[in-house]
């Protein structure tokens, strides 16, 4: 579905105008982004708003550059990524194992099915004070909460993916003499992989959201902690440079995941699109 606004052309348009319009549509995607920053800068420089609420764009990017050079950014981003990925990987390992077991063993399904159906939609961050109570205010409780928050989306998708495996594939493997164990590794897991990766792609942004929240609440090294400290010291340039840094980190994580999906599913029909 695209616009069919182009009316039938009666006269040939001027070639110069065509080239100009082509050039315009080439740079058009940059316009909203540049425009956003420009609007921001104009508003903040105009003095209509308190500079505390709206620091100037160059000041924010100077701060980002400074922290990039003095290593502050790498230190904080490293701590944040370590927690997010550690929690996410623990969740992935557990959720894929349990998800596959659920699809194949009835009693496991009976036990975990209601837990997943309640756990999937619930706001997992609500358990943050519980994990703080149990594991203290350091990495152990942060990582546990991140794992807890990521677990359900991956498990739900693993179950759906495993149950949705075309039975003819399994039958083919059986009649080609494969053992049940081999079928699990060479048929069920690869066939469920697209949906397992979908689970990863739902869980990973959640893990990032929760990581930032735990860091804001418990402090320590990390992008969230640095941001909340900036806020406490009324350092609004620090707050906004924190958003830029967190946004960049989130961008790297999400695009790495997309790249991984394309690599792993190069055999899949979706790769052709």
């Amino acid at each position: 579905m695209t616009s069919d606004g182009a009316a039938p052309r009666v006269a040939l348009p001027d070639p110069g105008a065509v080239a100009l319009s082509a050039l315009f549509w080439k740079v058009a995607p940059a316009i909203p982004i540049v425009g956003l920053f420009a609007l921001w800068q104009i508003l903040s420089a105009s003095g209509a708003f308190n500079p505390y609420l709206m620091p100037e764009v160059p000041a924010v990017f100077r701060r980002v550059a400074l922290e990039l050079v003095n290593g502050e950014f790498l230190l904080n981003a490293g701590a944040t990524l370590y927690r997010a990925l550690a929690g996410f990987l623990i969740a992935a390992a557990l959720a894929v194992t349990i998800g596959i077991a659920m699809a194949r063993i009835r009693i496991v399904h009976w036990f975990f099915d209601p837990i997943l159906s309640v756990g999937f939609p619930m706001p997992k961050v609500a358990f943050l004070p519980v994990f703080m109570l149990w594991f203290g205010a350091y990495d152990a409780s942060k990582i546990t909460l991140i794992a807890f928050a990521s677990f359900f989306a991956i498990a739900v998708n693993t179950v759906a993916g495993t149950q949705g495996v075309d039975r003819h594939l399994v039958w083919s493997a059986r009649s080609l003499g494969a053992s049940e164990r081999k079928i699990l590794w060479t048929v069920i897991l690869p066939a469920a992989l697209p949906q397992i990766l979908t689970g990863f792609q739902i869980a990973l942004p959640l893990a990032m959201i929760v990581t930032i929240v735990t860091e804001m609440l418990m402090g320590g090294v990390g992008l969230g902690g640095a941001m909340i400290r900036a806020q406490r010291f009324a350092d609004s340039i620090g707050v906004f440079s924190g958003i830029v840094q967190i946004g960049f980190t989130g961008f790297v994580v999400i695009f790495t995941m997309r790249w991984l999906r394309r690599r792993l599913l190069s055999w899949h029909e979706e790769a052709k699109r």
């Binding site: 995607p29 909203p32 942004p205 929240v213 992008l223 958003i243 989130g250 999400i254």
Partner: peptide, 24 residues
């Protein structure tokens, strides 16, 4: 063409990072 770049830019941002700003 005009909306998509903004979406691409803001989509990967973990939205909890905006909590201090919304409070501000």
């Amino acid at each position: 063409v005009f909306i998509n770049p903004l979406i691409q830019m803001f989509y990967p941002l973990p939205k909890s990072a905006l909590i201090p700003v919304t409070i501000l």
